[in-house]
Design a protein around this nucleic acid. Structure first.
Lengths: 144, 144
DNA sequence: GTTAGACCCCGTAGTCACTATGGGGTTGAG
DNA sequence: CTCAACCCCATAGTGACTACGGGGTCTAAC
C-alpha cells in the first residue's frame, strides 16, 4: 500500500522539480491527484508513468501541446498511430531546420572570429562584421 | 534634410517591426530619438546604423545583453577587442553545444520514427519509446 | 472643410516552459 | 515541544518579442 507518492518523491523519481509538477497540474497535462488529510498531493503509479512519459517527450523536444496530443492519442490504443507519426515527423523537420540554421550560424561565427587579429576595437573584424556595410562614419557610426 | 526617418520607415529599412523598435527603446538598447511636434519619433542615420548592428547581431544569435555589451565595447574604438572576441567565442561554444544536442535528438527521433510500422497506437513504437520502460500496465498505463 | 485611411502614440497582456519568491501549514524525529 | 524538512498557494519574473485596444496625427481626395 505504500505505492502512493508525495510530490517530493515523485519529483525525485522523475527528475522533475516540485514546482514543475505543480505547473503541469495547473496546465492540465498531469491530472490532479487525490489529497491527504493534510491537503498534500498523493500520487499513484499511474501518475508516475504519465509524468515519465511527459518528461521523456520533453527531453526529445516536443512542446507541451505536442505532448498533450501524444498523450491523448496514446489513450485510445486501438487507433491508428498515423497521427502520432505525423507529430513526430513534424517535430523532426523542425529539429532539422534548427540544426541547419545553427550550422550556417556557426560557419559565420567561425569566419568572423577567425579573421579577427584582436587588436583594437577600431580594427576589430567582429565589430566590422556586425556593422552596416555602408555606414557613413561622418553621419555618426554605430553609436547613436 | 530628409534624412530623418519615421519609425515605420526605420522598421522597413531594417526589417524590424515597429513594435520591436519601441521595445528596443524601452529596453535601453536603442536610444530614444527626438520627437516631432505631433510627438512622432524622428530617427537619424546614427539610429539606423545602430539598429542595423543590433539586428545583425541578433541574426547571429547573440542575446540582447550580449548585443548591449558589444555596442558598449564598439563605442570605445581604441580599446582592445579581446573582450569582443570573448563574447563571440562564448557564443560560438553555446551554438556548438546546441548543434550537438540537436544532432543526438535527431538521431533518436530518426530511430523511433523509423521503427514504427504505423499500425495501431497499441503497437506504436513512438509511443512505446516515450513510455517508461518498466511501466506496470496492470497498475494503469501512461494514462493517469 | 471634412473625411477616409494610413500612420503613429501608449500601456498592458500574452507567448513558452518553467523558475523564483514569499508567506504560510503539516509531518515526523528527537 | 520544538525543529527541520517537507508541503501548500498565489504571484511575478525570465527572453525577446507579439498582439491588442483605444486613442491621436497626417495627408490627400472630395
Amino acid at each position: 500500500m505504500s505505492k502512493v507518492l508525495t510530490i517530493g518523491r515523485l519529483a525525485e523519481a522523475t527528475g522533475t522539480s516540485v514546482e514543475t509538477i505543480r505547473f503541469y497540474e495547473k496546465s492540465g497535462i498531469l491530472p490532479s491527484p487525490a489529497r491527504t488529510d493534510g491537503n498534500y498531493r498523493s500520487y499513484e503509479p499511474a501518475h508516475l508513468n504519465r509524468l515519465s512519459f511527459i518528461r521523456r517527450a520533453r527531453e526529445l523536444g516536443f512542446s507541451l501541446d505536442q505532448v498533450k496530443e501524444l498523450l491523448r492519442l496514446s489513450d485510445d490504443r486501438s487507433q491508428s498511430c498515423a497521427a502520432v507519426d505525423d507529430i513526430a515527423k513534424l517535430h523532426r523537420t523542425e529539429v532539422e531546420r534548427k540544426i541547419s540554421d545553427l550550422l550556417s550560424l556557426k560557419t559565420e561565427l567561425d569566419r568572423i572570429i577567425d579573421t579577427c587579429r584582436c587588436g583594437t576595437v577600431a580594427d576589430c573584424r567582429i565589430i566590422e562584421s556586425l556593422s552596416p556595410a555602408d555606414a557613413a562614419r561622418s553621419e555618426g557610426d554605430v553609436t547613436a
